[in-house]
Design a protein around this nucleic acid. Structure first.
Lengths: 175, 175
DNA sequence: ATAGTTTTTGTTATAACATAACACAACGAA
DNA sequence: TTCGTTGTGTTATGTTATAACAAAAACTAT
């Protein structure tokens, strides 16, 4: 328990990557608190099982497959496997606290959850093919364009999957 | 071999869904021809194996999994399985003639291929969750927005995955 | 044509991802 | 307590994707 002077995380929710060196301790704690609160509000239970899955995803901002997570968890005696992990992931996805990255068959913890809003809440994901980190953006213009395009096509949007693979600033994006 | 009077397909490449009743015979023939030509130009071989896979995908405008395709193909004696199918799919993906739909683990034949251009060529996909059909769009504004957003984030785009699930005009999009 | 090269195929095995089904435990309300 | 609901543990199985390697087919250059 070292440096605790609160450091006012460097624009964590600006739609960019998590700034490489941010106060990760506070970041994790805040998101866990938020999960706690959200569950309490909705009469849901943030059980130990669920909590460890979320903590595992929060450890870094990288996507993990369900099997990755299953391996990292200390199952303390019981067998423990993908089933438990998928169950927890489903739970958090419904709450909007975890997002599935379709193009990776993997999951990330949401970095700026929106209260009471489930699912993918219209976010876009920037996936670094080099370091593996994922940033969550929420670009209104992009969202508008999707709406417009869909309308033109007579298409009623249910769930937009926007996952942009490329290089993050640290890995060569900002040369 | 009945109605062959050429019917001038109803705006097949307008970015919308394939019009439900278009001249499918001509549509398929045209795309196969295009594949032929593209291969000839690039010194590649459109082998019988590859051709049947493409024909299978062209049969309707629905995405198929590699295993779906493997089941539908007449393997004429030999075993035949996913391996062959994945190989052909990879071949066509590189040519830009087939696209993978990440959110479905499935593949569709490209409905408006761009010559000499491989990969996903910046397209967006509208996936009907009801009838399963897929439309391929190519919205410039959307593309611009992605570029802009990425630039703002210091992110260098390699491969944007845009897959919008919802209801197509026939299934309730256009009420 | 024919020897050597590259490409494609056939085949088997296995890896990686995801869910079905069911019994039991824990919890929360009547 | 009793009952209904929700969550968990466990086994089995379904689905998607690739590794590895030998044999066949196609091209290439003499």
């Amino acid at each position: 328990m070292g440096e605790d002077h609160d450091h006012a995380q460097e624009r964590p929710a600006a739609g960019l990557f998590p700034a490489a060196r941010h106060d990760h301790r506070a970041c994790v704690a805040g998101l866990l608190d938020h999960a706690d609160e959200l569950c309490r509000d909705q009469g849901l239970r943030l059980t130990p099982n669920r909590r460890v899955v979320l903590e595992c995803l929060l450890a870094d901002h990288k996507p993990l497959s369900a099997y990755d997570i299953a391996e990292r968890i200390d199952w303390q005696g019981r067998r423990g496997g993908p089933v438990q992990v998928y169950r927890a992931l489903r739970f958090f996805e419904d709450l909007g606290l975890v997002h599935r990255i379709e193009s990776l068959n993997a999951f990330v913890a949401c970095t700026h959850p929106v209260d009471g809003d489930g699912a993918r809440h219209g976010a876009q994901f920037l996936v670094c093919t080099d370091c593996g980190r994922v940033a969550e953006a929420s670009d209104p213009a992009l969202r508008r364009d999707i709406g417009r395009m869909a309308r033109q096509a007579g298409f009623q949007v249910q769930d937009p999957v926007i996952e942009i693979k490329g290089l993050c600033p640290d890995c060569g994006g900002r040369r």
